[in-house]
Write a protein that binds this DNA or RNA. Structure first.
Lengths: 342, 342
DNA sequence: AATATTTCTGCAATCGATTGCAGAATAAAA
DNA sequence: TTTTATTCTGCAATCGATTGCAGAAATATT
């Protein structure tokens, strides 16, 4: 069932000219007679010619393709970032090759290698949770491919980065809790090998310090990433003789949802007896009852920023590539789950 | 900053052999001496060689790439389907090029053409809402590219299709409402140029007929796709002198959410005075109060099915391609918003 | 009319990997 | 030892588009 496709040679043959001229016409070069050019374009359309990008890329040495590696394609935040990138790259006729690492380092390495093989011009990556070794990322740079890290970045690698100011956001969130009169604020933290979670913890600590509140280590629950783990941590916290009066689920809104469900089940009134703050501004946070205070990361905007950063960098490619970090300030969205004043 | 990459010629030169042998070794052919093969692989690793897939594809005439076109990457359903496809294709070392049509026919055409240019082996598409002309899809077939439609399919095109049995699902949903004692059931319908919405409407009508309930045209609201439109439709419905006692938001859960919010605001008790059923099983339907009855489409599974359908078709490629339709039966998820009995 | 300039076209190499074919080197069989 | 079979290796063409260079054709300048 293989139909042979029309090539520039077919067009050339039909018009009794060379492929060179056809190529020039199709690329709108000036070095072809206006009439022949028109004739070529007309014939190309008639024969339903489609340029073979593969061949073109091989010759020209660039692919106009950006590779993206994310832990999960179908996670809201990442899907939005990808949508943002797609939006911005589409206009410039770039293609996107998308891979998911499933949070596994091994798969991440394979994805990156595939993208290198594909000769992509740029790789955009948010590293997986269990990523520890970074030779595959260094490899990207060694192959002359632009590397842009976002959200979950490897600090020590000097690449372009687009991140959220996690520390600042956490600081604001916890400060807000304190202003609302909460005094024993618990933290549900994520895996500390990921910088984003370290930063969120740092913001939490900073806020406490700023307001001269002592850090109680029993109020910090490790690895409470999912809804289930958030729920489990909450059960533990609320069973303490001296339970917290607020919980900052710094890992995700899913975790915060777990908190809310357990708190409600255990008879804690939200927000009067327990304040809850999540992270990410998932759609559902608006419609729980009470609605959940959270932090918006401007994910689509982040995607656009990544794409534009790449294009900008391309334009100034004559200059040395200077590691550049763009930090997007997330926004605290205050909702019912933390509003017990005013 | 262009570093020249290692090619098979570099390896060949270093070892004083030809590129042919290097190529054979890298492809694990039997026609190379075992020792030279080992030596070649070792050298390739040392030189950090990465195969140029572009060149390889050009020669071999296939790209091991599947192109996907969806209206929106960051819509839950589509993100899940893509994740499912990714999961199944990854093992077979296929790549995914993803495009979004933003529900615009014009962009859809451009995306499809790009994918043809890229010489993808297969195009997986869910057509955009305003897609009317289908020459670009016929074009795919004419170029010898496997075309698989899913969810929103163009019926008259004889291609592989993976769909949900929308009619059956709607039939079950509305039957469930009737069994719960609801008698005046309204329908929020989607754009009727998309078959999926036609089918859902057909299921609604079938259920009414089956239970000998007369169709009231005023209870059918056109084009209530989004949360806002769903809310608007609901306001209209509930202001009627003889309002419905149930609303089937056949377009989406977002629409159903709009229904719920308006109903609550207008003082209608759900489910006792008004039953609500959505479509898609979005994560949030579980956590609204009351939780929303909806229909699960098994989106990730759908993605895997699509990928496997392709691979299966590849294996039997010697036989003529027979249009094949796989219909996945969605599942009604009964929750509080429609449970007023038992 | 002779020369210089501009515009166009073709030739042939190139991008990097793959593969059919032919022949060399080695091993096995007679 | 000769013949046959097997295993390896290299040559050269191929995939389709692009592009530097050279020369032809057309136009402009003196």
């Amino acid at each position: 069932m293989k139909k042979k496709r029309t090539t520039i040679y077919d067009i050339a043959e039909k018009l009794n000219i060379t492929a060179s001229s056809v190529s020039r016409a199709l690329n709108n070069s000036n070095y072809v007679n206006e009439n022949t050019k028109k004739l070529i374009l007309k014939t190309a359309a008639e024969l339903n010619y489609k340029r073979n990008t593969i061949a073109s890329n091989l010759r020209s040495g660039q692919s106009k393709t950006i590779g993206i590696v994310v832990p999960r394609i179908n996670q809201n935040f990442f899907a939005n970032v990808i949508a943002g990138i797609e939006d911005a790259t589409y206009e410039k006729n770039y293609n996107l090759i998308i891979c998911q690492s499933n949070e596994q380092e091994e798969k991440e390495v394979k994805c990156v290698n595939t993208l290198i093989n594909q000769q992509v011009d740029c790789i955009v990556i948010s590293v997986s949770a269990d990523s520890h070794d970074h030779t595959h990322l260094k490899n990207v740079i060694e192959h002359g491919i632009q590397l842009i890290q976002f959200d979950r970045v490897v600090d020590e690698l000097e690449t372009l980065k687009v991140i959220n100011d996690n520390e600042q956001a956490s600081l604001e969130a916890v400060s807000h809790l304190i202003e609302q009169g909460y005094k024993r604020i618990a933290l549900l933290e994520g895996p500390q090998n990921l910088d984003i979670f370290k930063q969120r913890k740092a913001g939490y600590l900073k806020a406490l310090k700023k307001h001269k509140i002592a850090v109680v280590h029993d109020l910090i629950i490790e690895n409470a990433w999912t809804k289930e783990l958030g729920a489990e941590g909450t059960r533990k916290l609320l069973s303490m003789p001296n339970p917290p009066d607020a919980i900052f689920a710094s890992t995700s809104d899913f975790s915060a949802l777990g908190v809310l469900e357990v708190a409600t089940a255990m008879g804690f009134k939200v927000p009067s007896e327990l304040g809850i703050c999540g992270y990410s501004n998932e759609a559902f946070t608006e419609i729980t009852s009470p609605s959940i205070t959270t932090i918006d990361q401007f994910s689509i905007y982040m995607g656009k920023t990544i794409a534009n950063l790449y294009f900008q960098e391309m334009e100034n490619k004559e200059t040395e590539v200077i590691p550049k970090i763009i930090s997007i300030k997330p926004k605290l969205i205050i909702r019912s789950s933390t509003s017990r004043k005013g």
